[in-house]
């Protein structure tokens, strides 16, 4: 009878009890660990049962992988997470990541957080083998509804063509998804947060055409430019001062009975009459 060098606990796989030249491989389905030579011997011919006694998993040679982490449980967890995250991948639903990541694909932050939580819950279910049938069923349903998964016979499902107004996730597992993230056209940076730069009374754009008494001193004077002085800004400020308040009639606006035909402040605050502040 052939004996297999089986090492169940990775922490014991030290040079002390195994030869340093011995390479181990881990099955990605049952996470049992046998040496590379045994894998070659047993699985070269094709599908075979896992050689660990008590394990009835049928494995191919490709199922045996080089161990990436010292702890087999970590290897297993990484694989399971890959599977869940790969299944619930939003890009497979035809969605695109926005500037803020996948959050942009959701109607609101709450939905996005729900999605993240669900994904994590599925992963933990698989890792700790809680609620396994239900979790797997949900994942399968999600795949088949969105045409992502493979049928039992290995044939890839055809993706149903999306209809307008269609929900991004047809299985209804991920809620609050937008059909597609439509990026807003990038607008140039505006320091005034959207306040109109255009003036009413004058045209600030042709600052170059204005002349003031200080022209000879300051206009196009490079030494001033170095300090950040801007002729256009100066002109603009002067003009703004010249016109700001031209249409403000204090006698009317501050009055108790303003003439409504004249322009008024939206909320004219009245100065409170205080006799002596001291």
């Amino acid at each position: 009878m052939t004996t297999y060098i089986v090492q169940m606990d990775a922490s014991k796989a030290t040079a002390a009890d195994t030869s340093p030249n011995l390479r181990f491989k881990v099955s990605s389905r049952c996470y049992h660990r046998i040496c590379e030579g045994c894998v070659d011997r047993k699985f070269s011919a094709g599908k075979a049962q896992c050689p660990v006694s008590g394990c009835d998993k049928m494995l191919w040679k490709r199922d045996w992988k080089i161990q990436t982490f010292e702890d087999i449980q970590v290897v297993r967890e990484v694989d399971l997470r890959k599977r869940v995250f790969g299944t619930l991948d939003l890009s497979k639903l035809g969605l695109e990541e926005g500037p803020n990541g996948w959050e942009d694909c959701f109607e609101d932050l709450r939905s996005y957080n729900d999605y993240l939580e669900m994904r994590e819950e599925f992963a933990m279910n698989l890792i700790y083998s809680t609620d396994l049938p239900a979790t797997n069923k949900k994942l399968r349903e999600f795949q088949s509804a969105n045409g992502l998964g493979k049928e039992e016979d290995g044939k890839t499902q055809t993706k149903p063509a999306p209809k307008p107004g269609d929900y991004a996730d047809r299985s209804g597992l991920i809620k609050g998804l937008r059909r597609k993230f439509v990026p807003r056209p990038a607008t140039p940076y505006n320091a005034f947060t959207g306040v109109a730069k255009d003036r009413g009374y004058y045209n600030a754009a042709d600052a170059d055409r204005y002349e003031t008494a200080h022209d000879h001193k300051h206009r196009h004077y490079e030494l001033h430019d170095i300090g950040g002085y801007s002729w256009a800004a100066y002109i603009d400020e002067s003009l703004l001062r010249a016109f700001s308040g031209l249409g403000v009639f204090i006698g009317n606006e501050k009055s108790d009975r303003p003439d409504m035909a004249m322009p008024l402040a939206t909320s004219a605050p009245q100065a409170k009459a205080v006799d002596d502040v001291f």
Binding site: L240, V248, A273
Partner: peptide, 29 residues
């Protein structure tokens, strides 16, 4: 008239100033 009266951005700027808010009065006031 609310839709026809002129609303110049410069005027609104002045209305935000403390000179307008605290130090502008009608002759009566």
């Amino acid at each position: 008239t609310v839709f026809t009266q002129s609303k110049m951005i410069e005027d609104d700027g002045y209305r935000a100033s403390s000179q307008y808010r605290l130090w502008s009065f009608t002759e009566e006031q």
